[in-house]
Nucleic acid binder design. Structure first.
Length: 428
RNA sequence: GGCGGGUUGCCCGAGCGGCCAAUGGGAGGGGACUGUAAAUCCCCCGGCUCUGCCUUCGAAGGUUCAAAUCCUUCACCCGCCA
């Protein structure tokens, strides 16, 4: 990993559109001339992080590559309380045991994006439960609470917007205090002087800066990344099926790759700037290619490849791409060898059929894979002629599979519409 | 505490005893055109053992040959008056 301090870091981030707000930019720029310690907090609100969380996380990685010292904080405590930022209703509390389990899974995920081994500026991991849990109520109110003005707390957007609506519980109201304590704690123990986060975190981060000033007379910085938007107005990182997760159990590497490959033309360059570690020159070159011939989808492919490699692995990215080509009919299915076929199908939702038994209909099988919610839905697909078996159209609702349909004697490929694939495996 | 209005399918929202699995819009799905884009156009969109049957209109009871529609109780929301 590169260890030299890169003074162009802020400029690069700006060019990529990765800076929403910062505290005093000149002072921040000055401080970044030497290695600083910075942190990013992630709350365990699900068993996995999703592609939206990846935006600030990769900014952290850029900071580490530029020679700074990253701390990844997992919100074992804040996750129990619930951040009101960016929400217009109260969160339901998650069970402590569940949150603990999520903390562990998320720690593991986050750690893949940082270098913990380098001797120069290794990343470290923290959990705010470590210093929050032992704190007594009296100590909390006297040592921390005294530094907070309720008036200012009420002025935070996350709180005031909720007061105008259905209100906010004392629990969520206190969230900003907990996050402020984290910053103070890391400032004290590691001289952490920069916190980054999504733009919705600005209020929470600046609350921390105030606490550091009041409690320690110290000064520190804030940097937020903008909320990533899509040209069509829909939410980034969501599909019909839900969020795009990093956990391969929750979003298969195949689906992950497809998500990026199917990016809107109008978004793809922005996504590359946001996520890719290619240089500015390389990206500008891709932009040119893309504008000249968007149909070739060079930029889409580069984006999908790079991110799948980063999040899963280069081997998986390679496999998934080969699979996609074959499954989308860019290669003859019948000519695939069993190993290639098996690895392609490994990424798909699937069902099994026992060799000796009578083979079910296409409709039954598609429903069994879970690609559609009901048999009625599967029938509809056939009726609307969007049903395929091994890339050939399924003629009728009562169409039954036959032995000969199984490629290499083992696998049959179901497709619904243009891009929704599933597989059937024949087992003995 | 009193009076009135509301709670409908993934979301918004019509329906106000039979013609209701329930108008319309959005989301979603299939097709055409393309590039596994976008826009546009056409079609579909509760489930099933599918010319029929089953389960849905806040919850539970009731009236009726027949209820999303009427009655009773309960829960929640929203107004107005105390």
């Amino acid at each position: 990993m590169m260890t030299a301090i890169n003074n162009d870091l802020l400029d690069d981030l700006k060019w990529r559109g990765l800076i929403a707000q910062t505290t005093d930019e000149a002072a921040l720029r000055e401080s970044l001339k030497k290695p600083v310690t910075l942190y990013l907090g992630t709350d365990p609100t699900a068993p996995s992080i999703h592609v939206g969380n990846l935006v600030p996380l990769l900014v952290m990685r850029r900071f580490q590559l530029a020679g700074h010292n990253p701390i990844l904080l997992v919100g074992g405590a804040t996750g129990l309380v619930g951040d009101p930022s960016g929400r217009n209703d109260e969160r339901s509390l998650n069970d402590t045991a569940i949150v603990e389990q999520w903390v562990n899974r998320i720690k593991l995920q986050l750690s893949k994006f940082m270098d913990f081994e380098t001797t120069h500026n290794p990343a470290t991991m923290a959990n705010n439960l470590d210093w929050t849990a032992p704190l007594s109520t009296i100590a909390f109110l006297r040592d921390i609470g005294k530094h907070f003005s309720v008036n200012q707390m009420l002025n935070k957007d996350s709180v005031s917007s909720r007061l105008e609506k259905d209100g906010i519980s004392y629990t969520e109201f206190s969230y900003q205090v907990l996050q402020s304590m984290d910053y103070l704690e890391l400032f004290r123990r590691s001289n952490c002087t920069l916190q980054i986060g999504g733009s919705d975190q600005w209020g929470n981060i600046t609350a921390g800066l105030d606490l550091i000033r009041r409690a320690e007379g110290g000064s520190a910085h804030a940097l937020t990344v903008p909320l990533l938007t899509k040209a069509d107005g829909t939410k980034f990182g969501k599909t019909a099926g839900g969020s795009v997760w990093l956990d391969p159990e929750m979003t298969s590497p195949y689906a992950f790759f497809q998500y990026w490959l199917n990016s809107d033309d109008a978004d793809v360059i922005k996504f590359i700037k946001t996520f890719s570690f290619k240089t500015r020159e390389e990206i500008e070159e891709l932009e040119k290619t893309h504008n000249e011939n968007p149909g070739a989808r060079e930029a889409h492919r580069a984006l999908a490849r790079e991110l799948t490699s980063l999040v899963h692995s280069p081997e998986i990215a390679q496999r998934v791409e080969v699979a996609a080509r074959a499954l989308f009919g860019q290669a003859d299915l019948a000519e695939l060898d069993e190993a290639t076929l098996a690895s392609a199908i490994a990424e798909l939702p699937r069902t099994t059929v026992k060799a000796g038994e009578e083979l079910p209909t296409w409709v039954d099988l598609l429903a069994a894979t879970g690609v559609v919610d009901s048999k009625s839905a599967a029938r509809r697909i056939v009726k609307e002629s969007g049903a395929y078996l091994n890339n050939e159209k399924v003629p009728s609702e009562d169409f039954k599979l036959e032995k000969s349909h199984f490629l290499c004697g083992k696998y049959a490929l179901l497709r619904k519409g243009k891009r929704d694939l599933a597989a059937v495996e024949l087992i003995s």
